[in-house]
Amino acid sequence: MARVVVDVMLKPEILDPQGQAVQRALPRLGFEGISDVRQGKRFELEVDGPVDEAALARIHDLAESFLANTVIEDFTVRVEEAAEVAGAVK
């Protein structure tokens, strides 16, 4: 079994009030030097069988039609390596 990660972010030109609220809270918490925060979504898809080109193409279609609304959001699709997955379980 392999994991494919889809990251979805608002397009850069679209205002992200949640990210701004997080950014504005940082100085109060003693975090300096962060000039901007943007908040997105991460989807972890556990894929049965091999993650070959065909499987990735299908996931790309899924991300484009459903996980992201490409009118307002950009997305990336990547395969997470086995070591990373094991690390995440720890």
């Binding site: 608002l10 679209i14 205002l15 009030p17 949640q18 609220a21 609304n69 009118v71 307002i72």
Partner: peptide, 13 residues
């Protein structure tokens, strides 16, 4: 996509 554009959270949250 029957209407263009998209809807997001109110700017004041």
């Amino acid at each position: 996509h029957l209407l263009p554009g998209g809807m997001l959270g109110n700017d004041h949250l």
